[in-house]
Nucleic acid binder design. Structure first.
Lengths: 340, 340
DNA sequence: TTGTAGGCGTTATCAG
DNA sequence: CTGATAACGCCTACAA
């Protein structure tokens, strides 16, 4: 248990060879005898040597001309509602895990829709090599800034901007599937509750909702679509409206809406699932344990984070990578949509 | 608009002085003639020189102690259960907000109980000026490491270690209050469900649970105390046990346990609050919206983060600061503990 | 296949 | 008040 940091010089001395050889053994570059290489790797393992990224970056500066920090920025939305969503938390765990494998560390910063001073400070002080935007916007100030500035970045979610690297779950397909599932149960009048239309995800989900109807030759009831629901009072109004409307199902775009819906239904004496079915486009433990448990789409957010991080890093290191859609959803069918 | 970065050597050459002098002019350290200093600063302005943080960090590595990165490390627990808890997310929002005010940025890293390689990498590469540990452990590997290493740090929560700066909510007082509230309603046989005994918070809560009983001249039923509940199957076993035991109330240490408890009670035909009352030592929107809503302790986590950050920064900047207990809890009384 | 030497940009030490 | 110089840990021509 050495509290001390071990360097390639230490290794070189211990093994009676030169720093160069050690460097080569570790980086894998240059010709080197497999015997010596094994010896070095062995020592590295036993004394758990960790390369000093700062020195690496400084040395690399000469040849690449570029300043490297081995840090990635992760940008979180700053609105209150996002704080309740475990999505961002899971995402960052996936990001951090992969980043660590590549020797990168994570800088976290918040950004409100138009306030990106935190991101700016980090970028302009050269504290990061690239950035991950964890939410895409229709009018995406952070993305525009990073692009202008020439900073490599990836967005999590789909985007309308050109030449922006993105990684997304197949939200569209998943939502279509879930709505088809509901319609297949014979439901005919579905209400929809969702958040800000400035979030791309809201538009994607809405489109999926509509398309699923059309696919089955049905039409949605525009009057039962409630978007831009961003606080409790708007939500309460929407729910009250819905309950007066003779719908047979309520689809929530996020798990955050569901609690209030369940509460209000119970207060109004509306039984779930007998009178109205409920489903959510995003799952959480809350929906799993609510009474009744609520049908929802589950994605692998941690994996999404992992893929995002590796894409960004590869892109930073000069590789040509392109956007991709991850297929990894699952419909968690629960009591809230049961038919007898 | 030269696309090239300019270094202190460039400045030195251009001005016909030495690198040392330039360095001094820029850092403000050491004696220097105001005339030369002005010349340098002038040149710096005109050619917008930007210091190379990487080189700074590397150089600082030797005379370790003085270099400033204006970064703080925030260490998150890496276990699966923590990912579901909004506490850490709220905490970091508070931290980031205050840090930004002081010009600091946040580096986020995960640490399992004994695996602190991420933290080590950050510290040994001199990427941060200090650290915040968001969970305290009985056997606290990260804290010991930082202390040995001489890195300023603050822990969120109480700790058994000496000379460690800590900031905590008044969990003990709050828990005592809640239990007294329950006992005051005439409940006599309370069960308790909690997580790992290696977490200080678990011990604190348990002690409060016991002390509240003693204060009223009552004794707890040791057989109805279930700790180290760390996965669903253990939880299910515990609940089954409890329901066979003729208790009149169940106290959960965290909101995460409550969902399962409600579900199992419903399945067993046990009515809340008529047959059994339920309360939680930690609140969340889940408890607010569950059926029935569950009585719980609410803390201001964001504020806790803010105070933590400002304590750390002041400590980094040489001020003498000491641990403190924040008084900011509230008992959210809800239907799950109603008496008719 | 391996070693030597010099440099990446900055700061601190020690002379002038 | 200022200037050489030696580190910080790593990388890579260029030699051997």
């Amino acid at each position: 248990m050495s509290g001390k940091k071990i360097t390639i010089s230490d290794i070189a001395n211990a093994l009676g060879i030169s720093k160069t050889t050690v460097s080569r053994a570790i980086s894998g570059k240059g010709r080197i005898g497999s015997g010596t290489k094994d010896k070095v790797m062995d020592y590295v393992e036993k004394n758990n040597y960790e390369p000093n990224m700062t020195a690496k970056a400084l040395a690399g500066q000469r040849h690449s001309g570029k300043q490297r920090t081995y840090n990635l920025a992760v940008v979180w939305p700053d609105d209150y509602s996002a704080m309740e969503i475990p999505f961002f938390q899971k995402l960052i765990v996936g990001i951090a895990e992969i980043a660590a494998n590549y020797g990168y560390d994570i800088m976290l910063t918040m950004a409100a829709d138009d306030n990106i001073t935190g991101l700016k400070r980090i970028v302009e002080n050269h504290k990061v090599d690239g950035a991950i935007l964890t939410r895409t916007l229709v009018d995406d100030v952070p993305a525009v800034y990073l692009k202008e500035r020439g900073v490599p970045f990836v967005v999590v979610g789909s985007t309308n901007y050109q030449d922006v690297l993105w990684i997304d779950n197949d939200n569209y397909d998943a939502c279509v599937e879930l709505v088809e599932f509901l319609l297949g149960k014979g439901l005919k009048r579905l209400a929809l509750i969702g958040g800000s239309k400035n979030h791309i995800i809201t538009r994607t989900r809405f489109k999926a909702f509509r398309d699923a109807h059309e696919k089955l030759g049905l039409k949605i009831d525009e009057g039962a679509v409630y978007l831009d629901i961003e606080n409790t009072s708007k939500l309460d109004d929407a729910i009250k409206d819905i309950l007066n409307k003779d719908v047979d199902g309520i689809v929530c775009m996020d798990d955050g809406f569901v609690g209030e819906v369940l509460t209000k239904c119970a207060e109004a004496g509306v039984r779930i699932p007998e009178d109205i079915k409920i489903a959510s486009f995003y799952d959480s433990t809350f929906l799993e344990n609510s009474r009744p448990p609520v049908t929802a789409l589950r994605f692998n957010d941690r994996n999404l984070g992992a893929v995002t991080a590796s894409s960004l890093i590869r892109s930073i290191e000069g590789e040509k990578v392109s956007g991709q859609m991850l297929k990894n959803h699952e419909i968690m069918i629960r009591k809230s949509t049961e038919t007898e």
